Simulated assay, not measured.
Amino acid sequence: MGPRCHFWILANTLDRGRHSSLGPSSDCAPERRSECPSEWCRVWNYLFTSVVAQIWKSGFAYVANLPVSNFIEMAKHQPSCVDFKKESYRWKGDVDYRKHPELYRIGKGEQGVLTVEPYKSEIGQHWRFKTPQVAEESAGKIFSMFQKYLKERDFVGADMAKKYLNMGFTRSRRYANWKGGKKWTKSTGGQDKQECGWRLQVKGSGSAEKAECAEIFKKYFDLARADKTYLQMKEMWKKEIEGK
């Protein structure tokens, strides 16, 4: 029995479960609607129709490698940046993190990559992925900056350089997966107001050239995040600065 057959059994089991132990769906019988936790049902239906469809289409192996943000986006039916709140963002654009490195926090993924100065200006000017050749030059330059920051014992700079390599990979993949790099498009809908909102575009309509760019950045990103000096500095930073 293949993974999709197992998934089909699981999906039917879960679908039955949402009408019993997990609570009825929004289209449940009138006599049971009073028991229905509307917020839960709304989220469940989004997850069931969006995430489950993606699993069925691509298989478990693909979905297992998706970041959590992808599931959150699919559940909300909108890109994560829509809910971005600048005032509560931990990284501030008006802080000189070279002068005040103690204010820097590692965070997750690429957080702070477009905010933390002066590293944003120093590294960002070299960040390109138009073609594989451009991507190789860009990633190579940023990796050399990463090594330079390590030699200077500048952890913030090294961490930011690593994040730019990561962003080169993720952004290139976005252009490889979706035409024009647009994962979502804004739909104005028609007369039906329910059709308004964000729509996830068809995956696989992007550029094969950008997939090659992504692999180039990933090669350097993997080297950076596995660097022993970087890992030692990161561990010390977490203990001494972030208190973790």
Rank of each mutant, 00 (worst) to 15 (best):
A224E: 04
M233G: 01
D27E: 09
S121Q: 13
G204P: 07
S172P: 01
G189S: 07
E215T: 02
Y119S: 04
A61M: 09
G181L: 10
E136I: 01
L103Y: 11
V68G: 01
E102D: 12
E87L: 03
W44E: 06
Q147K: 14
I241Y: 12
F221H: 13
K228Q: 10
R32H: 13
L14T: 00
D192S: 08
M160V: 02
A53H: 12
V51R: 04
C81S: 15
W178N: 06
Q194F: 13
K163H: 01
S69K: 11
G243A: 05
A224V: 00
T13D: 12
C41L: 04
F7I: 04
A64H: 12
R90C: 06
T188P: 05
D154V: 00
N166C: 13
G190E: 08
D154K: 00
R153Q: 12
P118G: 09
M236A: 06
R33W: 08
A158L: 05
V52I: 13
A11M: 14
L66Q: 14
D94T: 04
T49W: 07
K151S: 14
A61F: 09
Q232C: 02
E122K: 10
W178H: 11
L66Y: 10
C36A: 13
Y62K: 13
V68T: 09
P3E: 14
H6G: 14
P30G: 02
W44Q: 05
A53L: 09
F217W: 07
M236L: 02
K130Q: 10
F217Q: 08
N166P: 03
W198R: 08
S138L: 03
G107F: 00
S121F: 03
G23K: 00
T185Y: 13
T188H: 11
R32W: 14
A214Q: 03
F84Q: 06
T49Q: 10
R199V: 15
E195R: 11
E212G: 04
K203Y: 06
L103W: 06
G109P: 01
K76L: 14
E87G: 03
T13Y: 15
I106K: 01
G109C: 03
F84E: 03
M160E: 01
S138A: 05
H77Q: 13
E209Q: 11
A61E: 15
K193D: 07
C213F: 06
V116R: 03
K179G: 03
G180N: 07
C28S: 14
A214G: 08
R90F: 00
K218A: 07
A135T: 03
I123T: 08
I216V: 12
L66R: 11
R16L: 09
P101A: 01
T170L: 10
R153P: 00
Q133V: 09
Q201G: 07
K76P: 01
V202G: 01
E209H: 03
E39R: 13
E122A: 07
H126K: 09
S88D: 14
R173N: 12
K76M: 13
M74K: 08
S20Q: 12
R32D: 11
V156R: 01
S80A: 15
A61K: 10
S21P: 02
G197H: 08
G180L: 08
Y149N: 09
V156Q: 06
P132Y: 05
C28W: 06
K86Y: 11
F146H: 10
H19V: 02
E152R: 08
K76Q: 13
A139S: 13
W184G: 02
S21C: 06
N65D: 14
Y230V: 10
